[in-house]
Amino acid sequence: MTELRIAIVGFGKIARDQHVGAIAAVPGAALAAIASRNASLPGLPHFATIEELLEKGPPIDAVSLCTPPQVRRAQAAAALAAGKHVMLEKPPGIGVAELDPLVAMAAEAKRTLFATWHSRHAPAVEPARQWLAERRIKSVHVSWKEDVRVWHPGQGWIWEPGGLGVFDPGINALSILTKILPKPVFVTAAELAFPANCQAPIAANLTLTDIDGLAVTAEFDFRQTGPQSWDILVDTDQGRMTLSSGGARLEVDGKVLAEAPDEEYRGLYRRFVELAATGASDVDLTPLRLVADAFLLGRRTVVEPFVD
C-alpha cells in the first residue's frame, strides 16, 4: 500500500495530543512535515507557514489543517490549488457558505476535501444510532458542559468572531445528535450568554425539533467545574438511552450496551486514507448549519467578563 504522506498545519494542543498518534497508528498514513509558527516536532521537517511548506517542503500528498477556523479557508484553497488532499479539523470553517468554493475546487482537482467530526467516531455512537432506529423516540436532552480553562487554556481565538466559543465543544454534541437521530432536526429557539469582553458565547441553551415535533433540548456551558459532562439522554418507548463520555459509553436503563477506549482520531485518519485513495470528498455541514441557526435565532445576554 502506498502511504498517504500528510503534513499537519497548525501544531497546537489538539494536533499534539490527538493527530500525531492517530497518524502513526493508521496503516497507509505517514506524518511527513509540520507547518506552525510556534511549534515543531523533532525529526520532522518544519515550516512556519503552509505557503512555505508547499513551496519548499518535502513531497506530501495531503495536509491536515489544525489551525483556528478563521484561517482555514485560505489554507485549504492553497493546498487544493497545489494538488493536495485536505482534512479540516472541526469546525470546518467560520461560516457555511465559505465551504462551497472549496468543495468545487476539490471536485475539479479530483482531490479529497474531508470535513471531520471526530465525535461521530466515538465507539458507542454507531451502536446508539442502530438502537434508536428500532425505537420510538419521545424526547432528547443534551448536556455538554466543560471547563474552558482546562480544555482550551490560553486559546484567545475561540472568543473571537468565528471562534464559536462554547459551540466549539457544543458542535461535537450536535455532530453526534445528527448522526444518531433518524430524522433531521432544526433549531427553533436559542439563548446565548456572551461574556462582556468576548465576541463568542460562553454558554447556550437550544431548543430543537424535527418534522414530527420531537422535543430536543441542549445545554452547553464552558463554565463547568468539577465533573465534566458530555451526555445525550434519549427517552424512548423502550427505555432511556444514555450516551455519555462524549460518545464512548452507551447505556439503556442503566445497562451498559457498548463501551470502548477512545479511537476517534484513528477513525478520522482511516477515513481520510480511504477517501484519498479515490479522490472522493466527505463534507457534511449539518452540525455547522445548526450552530449558524442558533446564532441567527439566539436571544443574547451579557454576563461577567471572562478571564483565562
Rank of each mutant, 00 (worst) to 15 (best):
V185H: 02
L113W: 10
I94G: 03
A115Y: 01
G83I: 15
G95S: 09
L181Q: 05
I180K: 11
I94L: 02
V86T: 02
M105E: 15
L99Y: 01
H118K: 05
P92N: 09
R73E: 12
T178Q: 14
W157L: 13
L164I: 11
P123M: 07
S143M: 11
L177Q: 10
P184S: 06
S119T: 15
E146I: 12
P153H: 05
S119M: 07
E160I: 10
M87E: 02
V187Y: 07
D100M: 14
V142L: 08
F194N: 03
R111Q: 05
A128E: 00
A107I: 04
K110S: 14
P91A: 02
W144A: 04
R73M: 12
R120T: 15
A76E: 00
P91M: 10
V103Y: 04
H141L: 06
A193T: 08
K183F: 07
H118D: 11
V166I: 15
P92F: 01
A189E: 12
W131V: 04
S119D: 12
R136G: 11
A78W: 00
A107E: 10
K90L: 00
R111P: 10
A82Y: 01
S119K: 06
E98A: 02
A76S: 08
F114K: 02
L132S: 03
V125E: 05
A106D: 06
I176H: 08
G162V: 07
V86A: 05
G93N: 01
A124N: 11
G170F: 05
A124G: 08
K179P: 07
D168A: 12
R129H: 10
W151S: 08
A190Q: 05
S175Q: 14
G156H: 04
N172M: 07
W159A: 08
L102H: 04
L88Q: 01
V150R: 14
K138P: 00
D147H: 08
G165M: 01
L132N: 12
R135G: 07
P123Q: 12
P182G: 08
R149W: 07
A107P: 00
Q155D: 13
R135P: 14
V96W: 03
V187E: 02
I171K: 00
A190P: 04
H121G: 14
F114Q: 08
G170T: 11
G162P: 12
H85W: 13
A124P: 05
P101A: 11
G162S: 13
Q130R: 13
L164S: 03
P169T: 08
A133Q: 14
H141I: 04
W157A: 10
H118T: 11
V96H: 03
K145N: 05
K84N: 06
H85L: 00
V96N: 03
P101Y: 15
G93C: 04
T178S: 15
R73G: 01
P127Y: 11
S175H: 14
A77S: 11
F114P: 02
A109W: 14
